[in-house]
Amino acid sequence: MATTITIAIFYYFFLLVVLFFMLYSFFNIYHLIRFGFLSFANVLVVILYVALATFFIIFTFNQLATVDWNYILVDLSDTNPWSGL
């Protein structure tokens, strides 16, 4: 049984944020395509957002790759809950 918690817990939190980001982005784009007018401004905004979002996601994962996620945040192996008894 694993008795340590690594800082990868922050990474998993970030993955949840990315999931939220992608879901909301999808709903926004769906609405703009489904209900927006066929205009230059609307098409431009959708394309710009997709490009910007893709660039930013790639950038964030590049930044996160510089971190050693195996670093131990909490070490539970030394603590014995029954030691005081």
């Binding site: 922050f10 990474y11 944020v17 980001f21 909301y24 996620w69 670093y71």
Partner: peptide
Amino acid sequence: EISYAFLLVLALSYYLVMMVFAFTAW
């Protein structure tokens, strides 16, 4: 290492959430 990872995740999450909220407002 811990505080760097925490602050990095916090900052990137902040910008991602802000970006999607800005798009929703638009």
